[in-house]
């Protein structure tokens, strides 16, 4: 009985420390030092309206935009209220059919040659904000044609928006699709 009372007291004090003091201190520190990041790295247009987060991808289907990766989130692609992947195994017929459809769609949009894997596979979060640099470059001809702009100009834009490996060796070269498309609209 004495041990139960003791356990209750330890549970209460340690809960106060780790469940209240800890998150409050972290929230205050985050707010003071990194307010932009703590609030979700939101992107605002010049008129002040918020059009998304630099970290959360959006779906694009217009011919004049760079397309994001497929997304397996429930209800609609890039639904941040339902993050997750397809969870289909490598031999699952559903997976193979979906990829076949995606490849056919890219081919009909004029893409030939081999297609970078990230452009036809769904990400783990379903919210991947990036595509690989190769997947961006391969889309340039379509966008140039649709927007009637020289390819070099768009290529230059892609170069400007390429995120390099962090500290020189971490991760992959990649392009943030939302940021790149915003810049396209501002050309």
């Amino acid at each position: 009985m004495k041990e139960i009372k003791r356990a209750v007291l330890f549970l209460i004090t340690l809960s106060l420390l780790t469940g209240i003091l800890y998150p409050v201190v972290v929230t205050v520190l985050a707010r003071i030092i990194f307010p932009h990041q703590a609030a979700g790295s939101l992107i605002h247009k010049s008129d002040g309206t918020c059009i998304g987060s630099a970290l959360i991808g959006q779906s694009f289907s217009g011919l004049g935009y760079f397309w994001s990766r497929p997304s397996a989130t429930a209800d609609f692609p890039y639904n941040p209220k339902a993050s997750g992947g397809s969870n289909w195994g490598a031999t699952n017929p559903d997976l193979l059919n979906r990829i076949k459809t995606n490849v056919a769609m890219l081919r009909s949009a004029g893409m030939d040659g081999s297609i970078p894997a990230d452009l036809v596979t769904s990400s783990a979060s379903g919210l991947d904000p990036h595509i690989s640099l190769e997947s961006a470059i391969i889309q340039i001809p379509r966008i140039a044609k649709e927007r009637q702009l020289p390819q070099e100009k768009i290529y230059q834009l892609v170069q400007n928006y390429t995120e390099n490996r962090q500290i020189g060796f971490l991760g992959n070269k990649r392009v943030n699709v939302l940021k790149l498309n915003l810049a396209l609209d501002n050309l």
């Binding site: 800890y22 201190v25 972290v26 929230t27 520190l29 985050a30 707010r31 030092i33 990194f34 990041q37 703590a38 609030a39 979700g40 790295s41 939101l42 309206t49 918020c50 059009i51 998304g52 987060s53 630099a54 970290l55 959006q58 779906s59 694009f60 289907s61 217009g62 935009y65 209800d75 609609f76 692609p77 209220k81 939302l178 498309n181 915003l182 609209d185």
Partner: peptide, 30 residues
Amino acid sequence: MIAAVVLVSQGVIQNFSGYKNVSLLQSTSY
């Protein structure tokens, strides 16, 4: 505590706000 702040510096969120509705750059449909 230190690790949490390092993570925020990279973009991990830390707030108690309600979920935020934002308008998409391009509307889509399903």
